[in-house]
């Protein structure tokens, strides 16, 4: 069971208190009607599915907030969590293979 740090509660808690919410930094297009079918598909369905550090979203059921995380999908270890809306942090060097 993973341990996850909620950046809003500033508390590290077990996975049971969180729900996974998919890849992060996929913003809803400002004007969907301007998008081609392929562009709209990319927004809806295409995912990085990274093997290694992965930007993703979680929701803390306790406080109800969505936040972002960088987690290594090979070790399942969280490298960091940060508040929604913050820019995508760079990959930590030592985890880049």
């Amino acid at each position: 069971m993973l341990l996850i740090h909620c950046p809003y509660c500033e508390d590290t808690l077990p996975e049971l208190e969180f729900t996974y919410a998919g890849e992060a930094h996929i913003a809803r297009p400002a004007d969907p009607s301007a998008l081609s079918d392929e562009e709209w598909r990319d927004y809806l369905f295409i995912r990085t599915n990274a093997r290694g550090p992965h930007y993703e979203r979680w929701r803390h059921v306790g406080c109800g907030r969505f936040f972002n995380a960088l987690r290594d999908t090979v070790s399942d270890r969280f490298l960091m969590t940060y508040k929604a809306g913050l820019p995508r942090p760079p990959l930590p060097q030592e985890t880049v293979e």
Binding site: M1, L2, T19, Y20, H54, T73, V74, S75, D76
Partner: peptide, 13 residues
Amino acid sequence: DQYTSYSQRGGLP
């Protein structure tokens, strides 16, 4: 399990 992973591990719950 609920999260994406390549660890072939999975959790206890």
